[in-house]
Design a protein around this nucleic acid. Sequence first.
RNA 1: GCUGCUGUAGCUCAGUGGUAGAGCGCAUCCUUGGUAAGGCUGAGGUCGAGAGUUCAAUUCUCUCCAGCAGCACCA
Length: 845
Amino acid sequence: MSDTTDSRFDPAQADLRWQQAWDDAGCFHADSDSPKPKSYVLEMFPYPSGHVHMGHVRNYTMGDVLARYKRMRGFEVLHPMGWDAFGMPAENAAMEKNVHPGGWTRDNIAHMKSQLKRIGFALDWSREFATCDPEYYGHEQALFLDLFEAGLVYRKESEVNWDPVDHTVLANEQVIDGKGWRSGAVVEKRKLSQWFLKITQFADELLTGLDTLEDWPEKVRLMQENWIGKSKGLQFAFSLSDGQLVEVYSTRPDTIFGASFVAVAADHPIAQGVAADNPLAAAFIEQCKRGGTTAAELETAEKLGFDTGITAAHPLDPARALPVYIANFVLMDYGTGAVMGVPGHDQRDFEFATKYKLPIIRVVAKSAADADQPFGAAAEAGDGVIVNSGPLDGMDVAAAIAEVIARAESGQWGSGKTVWRLRDWGVSRQRYWGTPIPFIHCAACGVVPVPKDQLPVALPEDVDFSIPGNPLAHHPTWKHTKCPGCGGAANRETDTLDTFVNSSWYFLRFASQPDDQPFDRAEVEKWLPVEQYIGGIEHAILHLLYARFWTRALQHIGKLGFAEPFASLFTQGMVTHETYARRAPDDGRQTFFTPAEVDKRGEAAVLKADGFPVEIGRVIKMSKSKKNVVDPDEIVARYGADAVRWFMLSDSPPERDLPWSEAGIEGCWRFVQRLWRLLGQYDPAATGEDKSVARKTHQTIAACAEDIEALSFNKAVARIYELTAVIEKSVPSASRSEAIRSLLLLVSPMMPHLAEEVWSRTGQGGLIALAPWPHVDSALLVDDEVTIAVQHKGKLRDTLTVAKGMPGAELEALALASEKVQRSLDGAEVRKVIVVPDRLVNIVT
RNA sequence: GCUGCUGUAGCUCAGUGGUAGAGCGCAUCCUUGGUAAGGCUGAGGUCGAGAGUUCAAUUCUCUCCAGCAGCACCA
């Protein structure tokens, strides 16, 4: 019966053979001209750090299962791979190991590619590229020039976040708690001329566009919404006693009659002006600047102010003069850098007013009768009716806001304004290993774009990393060139582009890669938008917002016909592992050990080297510093690609973290072998029907399809376990053989090597990678017999097995006739019987 | 502080207005020619807590508790 003579599946033999067979057959080559419906499955491309880690394996396994499944369903699938190859680590390696960033990156790519191939991913490697390829970044330079012509690129002097360790500028979002996201160094402020992309021009579109992204996680949409940070309010000016004007912004102009002071930021011009001839004010400003910026420090920081002695006239009650303070809690870079203080209805203002004994005026109350209710220990920021506000009294908050804005506009002392938290995207980096910004600085002509026929502006190969700062800037010859305008001597721009620019359009280049332009619009539009994009939640804001912006910008200049690149987004969880450590007895510092150095004995663990116990710590994301990493190469070498792939899909829902464990991978390995034995029993000659097996088979096929389409791989896995158990317990029949064949097809996207091996040994033609998904007989999806629960006093007393659809009256009679039920009733009077057909009978006494 | 997510077997998770499930782990036993293994059987649950709606709530509603994540002097 069995054609599989080997008693065990040997991945070391099979994996490589089938990977070669797929390559030879060109199975995963995506044909842009195919008449089939198209599906673009994309995982976020990796940075070539040198090693594939478990997080990559999980990410790419998910995409791979989906891609293989889609192909089985008759789609022409684009599932590409490439390399996000520019960035700091290559330069760090260059400095530390005295290698060239390009060579280091190329070596890493070669190694990681071989690792990915060993896991058997169904990728179209013919479309592979690295963002450090001059062809790629040359096209990127061309796109950058296009955006420049469209007015979406500009240069301005701005205060920047300077990382003193990396010697580079950081975007706001790359500064975390005042420190560089990569170096961890405390960031300094510097003024530099920088290149910017006008992302703010699309702020509203990027915000409203989120509503169209129904297949994105709610969480990610919310994070982007917060990041864009739209707020509506009134911007207006106070006339000051010294003759100046100060602009303030408020989202609650309805509370304007509750204002009891004006506060400006320490670096506001008014504050600077006061400080110029008041040493006390200058000292206070210095004190503000020393204040910490971490969340914890801000939480506990006391609200502090300095009374400038200046007063501001209230625009709706000119008799009132409000004191003007310099305050440590007002930020210069949001709104106008100055606020009106309304202590009654803003917690910060409340704390400030309490400290400096300023009036706290109630202007919003539960009802008009509560107009003089005293405040408790906090401000009241909620809704209500306006009181103590002259012409606004009796209005609700929304009406009062509209009224104040209308009065400000007609009185010409202010106007309604929308303020965004989002800033333009500073893309200049003072580094070597990035896309050179294609501009030339000419003393006569100014800043001139490099003509497109001179692209790419290629990086020089000979660079010196021994001097701190930008190697491009101190290269002896590279920057010297001729001005395209006047032909005179000129200098190249030595800044390079933020690497997030590289990843803002790579998904377009995967779809179409002509030599003479970045992409062909028609071809891109055949594939895009990406049907399913999969990656880590850490890119929820930066990469995904930039890619959305870039796509919209290209649409804006007529290069694309769609606005959103990723129709559906999935953010997968991390791969985690427990940690093993010992604490030094003197200072309590932890020394961590790798899983390989440790022997687990039940709940405890000992160090192999000395046999003494180690502490088992929390289950956290695999990281080098905690040494809780498992190397995919070793695991694949021991268990083969399929067991690892299976582990990545089973147990945890894909959006949640997946705890790696030795026991887990062992279980997967055993299941691979169990399947091997079962699938080898395929016998096309068997006869006879087994309805329950047939039913289970078709139910599983239908459910697995739904699960895979919803990316609920763990559910599909659970159903495959169930079907496996059912088939194992069945006796030979045609139904059983069909079940085995279906099971083989169901597992083939997840365990492709095992599946090919069985497919070939059981004499089925061709490659299973190209076979269609099994057909579902919908007649077999419903059971024709059902089990009915019989309850009395809320407890189960008996079950009945009856034909599906039996009428309620018959069920009731059968239930009451049950011996077990009669025993439970014990002669009690039946008051009511609830019958739910095909489900249960409940007898109430 | 605000927002979101999650609480079901020892672990990781399915599931449902009506009989509480799977895999792993654990225990007993069998096999020792599928053997760095295979199999039988079994134990194990206040479905986070409380209240409400209902004949019936793990499921629906409300309140609370715990854990995780993101955001945050954003005016």
